[in-house]
Structures are given as structure tokens and as C-alpha cells.
């Protein structure tokens, strides 16, 4: 059983490697340029999956935090923290590549689009969660869990709120419907990114669990000496 679970992470990376290569060569060599946005559109193929990754990880973190609160499970706490870290990474990726893409296509890095603002606010919640977990130490772990849950609950609310808020501002152009060959390039890229991220996520979660067990072992050792 133990052996099997240890095989999961290498398997994820082994599966991801050819997919990464395949999707990158597809993006750059075999996908026609989008007509109105030109070559810069190729940013889309990893930008959007990063956004989805960020949302997914925020959701996982929220659910894990809820389990942590209800069941007093340390494992769930580790999973929540690991998911939040990956979500932070994904969010940072989206927030950095978004303005680059926007600058290339619209000539402005920030349009205040509902998705942009939602991602930025979600990212702030994740950052607050990580700050609290890192500096709040053990006593504020439960509070951090509440923060993660609120982060997950907030996503649809923020999105809706920003859409309402935008009705008082000029609207920006949306991405037109994509032809099927674009999607054919998009899915392998998404799969590759998810595989890599879940591999990293599994490593980090196991590290955190191990660190918790180590701390406990130290305490027991000192207790036995005393």
C-alpha cells in the first residue's frame, strides 16, 4: 500500500513530461494564429489553465480546510496548505501573464474585466491565508481554515459582484468563440499543467504531513527523556 502511494508522484511526472512537450510544440508550431489577436494569442494556452488551476486549488483548499475543522484532521490541514501554495503559484502566473497578454492585444495591461478582478481578489485571500498559516503558528490554524473556506465561498460572489460593478464602467471586448483546433491544443496543455501541479501538490502535502509527524516525534522523545 505504501509502495503504491509512493509511485503516484513519479507516475504523474512521467505522464506529464510527454504532454508538456507535445502541447508546447503544438502551441508554437501547429496552431494557427488567432485572427484578431495575432501571435500573442499563444499566451492563452497556458494563461487560462493557470487561472483554472488557481480556482481549483482554492476550492480544494477550502474543502480540505472544512474537513480539517470538522474532523480535527492534521492531514487535511496539510492538504489545505499545499493546495493554497499551488493556488498562490497559479494565481501569480495568471496575474503576471494576464497583463502581458493584455498589453500585447489591447494595448493596456489591465482592463478591470470581471475575471481579472476576481482572480486578483481571490489571490489576495490565498496570500492572507498563507501569511496566517506561516506567521500565525499553531494557534491560528483553525482561523486560517475559516479563511480558506471563505476564500472558496467568495469566488462566485466576487465574480458576480464585479460583474455588477462593471455595469457602471465601459465593457471590454471578450474573446470570440474559438475554433476546434485551438481547443485541441488547449486540452493537452491543461492536462500537462494539472499533472505537474498535482505532482508538486502531492510532494508538498506529504512534506507537510511528514514535518508534523517529525515535530510530534521530537516532542515524544523529549517527553521520554524528562
Amino acid at each position: 500500500m505504501k509502495r503504491k502511494s509512493e509511485l503516484v508522484v513519479p507516475l504523474l511526472f512521467v505522464a506529464a513530461a510527454p504532454l508538456v512537450v507535445y502541447s508546447v510544440q503544438r502551441v508554437f508550431l501547429h496552431t494557427p494564429n488567432e485572427r484578431t489577436m495575432g501571435t500573442a494569442f499563444k499566451i492563452f494556452f497556458f494563461h487560462v489553465p493557470m487561472g483554472w488551476l488557481c480556482m481549483l486549488m482554492a476550492l480544494i483548499s477550502g474543502i480540505a480546510a472544512y474537513v480539517q475543522l470538522r474532523r480535527r484532521s492534521r492531514t487535511a490541514g496539510a492538504v489545505a496548505l499545499a493546495a493554497a501554495e499551488i493556488g498562490f503559484l497559479g494565481g501569480l502566473g495568471v496575474l503576471l501573464t494576464g497583463p502581458i497578454w493584455g498589453h500585447a492585444t489591447w494595448g493596456t495591461p489591465w482592463t478591470g474585466d470581471a475575471r481579472q478582478v476576481t482572480t486578483a481578489l481571490l489571490w489576495l485571500v490565498i496570500a492572507a491565508y498563507l501569511l496566517l498559516r506561516h506567521f500565525g503558528q499553531h494557534a491560528s490554524e483553525r482561523l486560517a481554515a475559516a479563511l480558506a473556506i471563505f476564500g472558496a465561498v467568495n469566488v462566485p460572489l466576487i465574480y458576480y459582484a464585479v460583474k455588477l460593478w462593471k455595469t457602471t464602467h465601459p465593457t471590454t471586448g471578450v474573446v470570440a468563440k474559438l475554433p476546434p483546433e485551438m481547443w485541441a491544443t488547449f486540452w493537452p496543455g491543461l492536462a500537462a499543467l494539472l499533472l505537474v501541479s498535482f505532482g508538486l501538490f502531492a510532494i508538498r502535502a506529504r512534506q507537510l504531513i511528514l514535518a508534523g509527524e517529525l515535530d510530534e516525534a521530537y516532542v515524544r522523545l523529549e517527553d521520554s527523556r524528562a
Binding site: 501571435t39 499563444k42 500585447a104
Partner: peptide, 16 residues
């Protein structure tokens, strides 16, 4: 566009 793409992909991979 190429410049933008290089920056975007560079940043993503550097993050990971």
C-alpha cells in the same frame, strides 16, 4: 508579440 510570449512563458516556467 514574440517578446510578450517569451516573457509570459518565461515567467510561468520560472515560477514553477
Amino acid at each position: 508579440d514574440y517578446q510578450h510570449i517569451v516573457w509570459a512563458y518565461g515567467i510561468l516556467w520560472a515560477l514553477f
